[in-house]
């Protein structure tokens, strides 16, 4: 009798332990984010002000958008290093369409728009992103060149195309409708910034697609075990091609939003974004080996990087030290995630 009760108690305790680990493993990135925010809030009260938090959300919205697309790619076990360059090219093409040419002389007089309007600019930017993704995806799936190599080539080639198109200089001076997408808030003046709405809207959409559609399950299947996916009749090449088109779409959209936000398209835009984007996805719990992860994690990962950068600047930490701290926290966040996940299987 006694023995039985003790056994039951032990089992109970074990179950509790397991469930805590389960909760931890599911929400590790969120917990990490809140701990970090709490630390910053204690040290610097201005951190928690609504306006500052909305600014952080807006700062991460562009790399966040691309990170949504990158989540699809990484879920299949792939990688895309070209996103920063593709973003710059798409933003530049959008600007050229909006201005009706590459003339980048700055006018002090009222800008008469001779271009094709903001909707054409958005379509052009997104089309360039999709096209870039399609070309890379085709090379990866048809020629069998590793994604790392193809997109490394894209990283260089898209940047070169941007420089060629713009002659190296920036294009600026857009009409208000163009800049609305990056600068406006709903409602004005203290509401939610438009880039944040775009970012979160697409995050929800991507989450639904990955979680609740057949296509979404196919993406996981291809990443989890491509051979099994192929044998079970999935068109693996088509799915792989599609994820590079998706990340291209988001890079194109991000290029337009960044151009709109800055009021200028620059040939140097997005340099190094690929690292921030990949870090956001990985911090969010998506495995670089594919088959495991989700978009909500990626959103949290993006916010975590934004909060870190913002908080460290607010506290006026030396820029040199900042780089060390950011590096350590990225490793720590992913390490924590892996640790609780490994405990779950016990």
């Amino acid at each position: 009798m006694n023995q039985a009760r003790t056994d039951a108690a032990i089992t109970n305790r074990q179950q509790q332990g397991v469930s805590i680990i389960n909760v931890l493993s599911r929400f590790a990135p969120v917990i990490f984010l809140f701990v970090l925010m709490a630390v910053f809030a204690i040290i610097e009260p201005n951190f928690l002000k609504a306006n500052n938090l909305l600014q952080v959300a807006r700062q991460v919205s562009i790399t966040g958008l691309i990170a949504i697309g990158m989540t699809f790619v990484i879920l299949t076990g792939g990688i895309d290093l070209s996103v920063g360059s593709l973003l710059a090219l798409a933003g530049m093409v959008g600007a050229v369409v909006a201005k009706g040419g590459t003339a980048n002389t700055l006018s002090l007089t009222t800008t008469e728009s001779t271009g094709y309007g903001v909707l054409a600019a958005i379509l052009a930017a997104v089309a360039i992103g999709v096209l870039g993704g399609f070309i890379q995806g085709t090379l990866i799936t048809r020629l069998g060149v590793p994604a790392f190599v193809v997109t490394l080539g894209g990283l260089s080639a898209f940047r070169g195309a941007t420089l060629l198109l713009s002659g190296g200089g920036p294009i600026s001076g857009f009409e208000d409708a163009y800049e609305w997408w990056g600068k406006a808030r709903l409602p004005e003046p203290d509401g939610i910034p438009v880039p944040v709405i775009i970012f979160l809207g697409f995050a929800v959409l991507a989450h639904i697609i990955l979680r609740y559609t057949r296509y979404g399950r196919q993406v996981y299947a291809v990443g989890g075990n491509p051979e099994a996916a192929r044998l079970s009749g999935l068109n693996v090449k088509k799915i792989l091609l599609s994820v590079y088109v998706i990340v291209g779409f988001f890079a194109g959209l991000g290029g337009f939003v960044l151009s709109s936000r800055l009021g200028a398209s620059e040939a140097v835009a997005g340099t190094g974004y690929e690292l921030t984007v990949i870090a956001s996805v990985v911090i969010g719990g998506t495995s670089l080996f594919g088959g495991e992860g989700n978009v909500l994690g990626t959103v949290i990962g993006s916010m975590l990087i934004g909060v870190l950068t913002n908080g460290l600047v607010l506290m006026n930490v030396s820029p040199y030290v900042q780089q060390i701290i950011i590096g350590l926290i990225i490793v720590l966040a992913v390490g924590f995630d892996r640790f609780v996940k490994s405990r779950r299987s016990v």
């Binding site: 306006n51 500052n52 700062q59 620059e266 607010l314």
Partner: peptide, 21 residues
């Protein structure tokens, strides 16, 4: 005293963060 790496987007985001404080 902060770095914005000579880049316009970082000039914007770093200044936003500075002004917030």
């Amino acid at each position: 005293e902060q770095t914005a790496n000579f880049a316009r987007d970082q000039g914007l985001s770093v200044t936003e963060s500075i002004l917030a404080g």
